[in-house]
């Protein structure tokens, strides 16, 4: 047998190299990381307002997070670096979070939600001013793709499509798993803020799909046409 031909007619040193790790990379969603440590820094330096619910728009606005929706980036992956020194009570909405991160936030009496945004809504969230100046009505947020549906509907990951009752059960479970006393947010003075949550179709806090925001006139125009209302509530 010729040297190198032990495997047959396709010797290893003549094979076309294949890296299956990269298979389908052009379709994969990317979630650039933001650590709990840097989130804490943003809060401590007063670049994030903790008296309001935090979402990707406010984090991008704080300037502490580089984000390019045009590069297949789908939002924030909150990582667990600095989980043991994290000490802020916040209501945050990110796009990806691990169990430890969820535990770190809930231990401080905060609330975390993982929510999916389609690329178009991410462009809007990255630069709302640019969008409002284009004079268009705010679109609806689209539903997640089939390969992400499990994450965003499961209560363990605090998905935005999960059943709220199951989420509260999971909160308790996680507290028991990590061994901390779950603070009762129902008796909190900022309960309303902690309960703030976006509708699955909503992109901006306080603004509904179909509304037109005019920054020059400082006004919001809401549609009244039946068909438009039906379209935007779909």
């Amino acid at each position: 047998m010729r040297l190198g031909y032990e495997t047959g007619n396709n010797p290893f040193y003549l094979r076309v190299p294949q890296e299956h790790y990269y298979r389908g990379h052009h379709m994969k969603r990317e979630y650039p990381p933001l650590s709990l440590h840097s989130l804490q820094k943003l809060i401590d330096t007063d670049r994030l307002d903790v008296t309001k619910a935090i979402d990707i728009a406010s984090i991008v606005k704080s300037g502490g997070y580089l984000f390019h929706p045009d590069q297949k980036q789908f939002g924030i992956h909150l990582t667990d670096e600095g989980a043991d020194i994290f000490a802020a009570k916040i209501n945050i909405e990110v796009q990806w979070a691990s169990e430890l991160v969820i535990a770190a936030i809930e231990r401080n009496g905060g609330v975390i939600t993982t929510a999916y945004y389609d690329p178009h809504s991410l462009f809007l969230l990255k630069n709302p001013k640019k969008f409002f100046e284009s004079g268009q009505a705010i679109p609806r947020r689209m539903i997640p793709p089939p390969d992400a549906i499990e994450y965003y509907t499961s209560a363990e990951t605090r998905g935005y499509l999960a059943d709220p009752e199951k989420v509260s059960q999971e909160r308790l479970k996680l507290a028991q798993k990590y061994g901390y006393q779950l603070p009762e947010i129902e008796k909190d003075s900022i309960y309303d803020m902690l309960c703030t949550k976006k509708d699955p179709r909503q992109i901006f806090f306080g603004l509904e799909p179909g509304w037109v925001v005019n920054l020059k006139d400082q006004c919001i125009l809401k549609p009244k046409d039946e068909e438009l209302l039906r379209f935007y509530s779909m």
Binding site: S134, G135, Q136, N214, L215, K216, D217
Partner: peptide
């Protein structure tokens, strides 16, 4: 698109009818 942009940027002063901001029936 241009008219919407004018409305978005210059408000009612631009003289554009804001009803243009919403999609038409065909667009929907």
């Amino acid at each position: 698109k241009y008219h919407r942009k004018m409305y978005g940027k210059y408000g009612m002063e631009s003289g554009v009818n804001p009803s243009l901001c919403w999609p038409s029936k065909k667009d929907i």
